[in-house]
Nucleic acid binder design. Structure first.
Lengths: 343, 343
DNA sequence: CTGTTAGCGCCTTCAA
DNA sequence: TTGAAGGCGCTAACAG
């Protein structure tokens, strides 16, 4: 299918017997122009259905007014909330966004970066894939002075602005809550250990335990690659052990829900036998049975903040030295952890 | 923040004392070029960290290799699945995507259309907002011969290709299933009546009833604007009536779940007192209690199909007369409707 | 095999 | 108040 012809300033100019520059000036409402000429041109443009060509402008001014976004996956509620915040913010400030998903693949992430840079995006918002363990591609981006910031899945290795939630504190809130409920043998179900959030949330987990005088014990840490299969396997392993925990803090809600399913299958009562808490506050968590206690992350706000900050940097409203924004998480108490009321 | 300087072919040419066209040819591996020259140029480009400027190419060839996507909202699982399918497909075929969300607003949808057209997207994939009841903006797009197709939320008014699921048949499957379970007084909970899917799903509902010799009765149709508030209100109204239904078919899962919550609050047993079925198969539906019987829509596949078809049209692999793709839905039987086994 | 020229659509001097 | 010229980065047609 061939795209229909788009009217250009040149054509308007020819029809009216004026120069292209005059048309250009009229269309951007320049004051140094005879009102009549302006009127004639604007009317002609409207009647010819003229549509401004942003591409040409971008080339001209070396600014595309496009932001690139790379996320691990589009279908997760958290990331789509981020994107929603980014999109709304960018739109309000006159920018479009181009989106890529790395599908949690390092190679894909590098490829995405390349096409977005090629497309001359003015800046990038990046959330790293699970596989990303080396950062040369980001370093190169940095060296080439292409503005970008990271959100949620970040690395400390590159000195750019970052937007995250307070993972450690969120985990602390969750585990502290479990402790308040009387649990003392609390397991931590972790994602891959090299993931930033796995580490941070473990910090909070350990801090809460320490505060209650419980010796740090790695023996209650279970690691999964977050596939349903392995989540199930790890949970079964835990159940097979002699000294079962009385509570589980799972690094993210989907993991918590996988754990919940396995526990229920095995006749374990939640929260009576084992209390459970997650992290993220996915919509699903509110409706599972029992409803899942979790930590709420402000996904939409993160997206807004990240986009606003990047645009502030681009527009030099704000100096471009790296800042770290840490958003607050909140505890959402639900039934999966209410020992006191349900026991 | 100023974007770092990007190396251009011109600079490479100057460094090497050749012409820009030679550089251009070398970089696209043209055969009519001395291997040595080519080698020198490619090496120089690499060492200077040259990055191709897609924007300039777009302007030159009048093709941006960008697809525009407009969806009502980004955070719904169904639409993010669509987008995921679109993105993966576009990427594979060398296209980027620009995404806008209309936030269910007609004005926003028109504005989105405008900026995407301005950005010179090669084609558009559109899913209409709930508010969209007039179609001049699409007609204009059509008249201007900008290739686009619609998916999921479509209108028959514009002769372009459409990708939808078989809504009527899906509804038929759900209601037929409820009938098989022995229910005879089946209510239909509908969204706004001017919505395409509201109508189509009602058709399937009525067809199933008819097949069982149940007189069409509008009295069991309940209409909501799909806000939680009104969903609740309508459900309460239904409960207040004398002749309660023994089953409910809700137009979409979130509505079904709102209904489920209200029923449970009122001590109604599901499915024993009232069976329940939804439509969409959101991830949430699998984990609610009782798990929700629903109709599965292939969101990712819809996105893939839509993107592939549009690109086929653009690349003239396929003639550009409008086609209608109707994807199959499947019944997902879960506990909210299993009268036979649970009664 | 390589260089020159022209132009994609737009805007910004500079000149008139 | 308006026009002409030049250029953003790249490519394609035409020379040589």
């Amino acid at each position: 299918m061939k795209k229909g012809h788009q009217v250009t300033m040149k054509e308007i100019a020819k029809k009216l017997g004026v120069s292209v520059s005059t048309v250009s000036r009229a269309l951007k409402d320049s004051p140094e122009l005879h009102p009549d000429t302006k009127k004639r041109i604007v009317e002609m443009a409207t009647s010819m259905n003229y549509q401004y060509n942003l591409l040409a402008q971008s080339l001209r001014i070396s600014r595309s007014k496009v932001l690139g976004v790379i996320v691990p996956e589009l279908t997760s509620h958290f990331f789509s909330s981020n994107i929603s915040g980014i999109q709304d913010t960018a739109y309000k400030r006159g920018y479009n966004i181009m989106i890529c998903q790395s599908n949690e693949s390092f190679e894909q992430e590098k490829a995405n970066l390349k096409t977005l840079v090629s497309s001359q995006v003015d800046g990038l918002l990046i959330s790293l894939s699970r596989e990303t363990k080396s950062y040369e591609h980001l370093q190169e981006l940095y060296d080439r002075e292409i503005p970008f910031i990271m959100f949620d899945r970040v690395t400390e290795e590159i000195p750019v602005s970052k937007v995250t939630v307070d993972d450690a504190h969120g985990a602390y809130l969750a585990v502290n809550h479990l402790l308040q409920q009387g649990c003392r043998k609390i397991a931590y179900f972790s994602g891959p250990t090299d993931l930033y959030i796995s580490k941070k949330r473990k910090e909070g987990y350990l801090e809460a335990l320490q505060e209650f005088g419980i010796p740090e014990t790695e023996s209650r840490v279970y690691v999964t690659d977050l596939t349903e299969e392995m989540n199930r396997k790890v949970t079964m392993e835990m159940l097979a052990e002699g000294d079962r925990p009385d509570a589980i803090f799972a690094m993210i809600d989907p993991l918590a829900i996988d754990v919940m399913i396995v526990l229920k299958e095995n006749g374990i009562k939640i929260p009576q036998d084992i209390a459970l808490a997650g992290f993220t506050n996915n919509p699903t968590s509110a409706v599972v049975e029992p409803s899942l206690t979790t930590i709420s992350q402000p996904g939409y706000e993160m997206g807004q903040l990240a986009a606003n900050h990047l645009l502030d940097q681009l527009d030099e409203i704000v100096p471009d030295d790296p800042q770290s924004f840490i958003l607050l998480t909140t505890l959402v108490e639900r039934n999966s952890s209410q020992k006191s009321t349900t026991a």
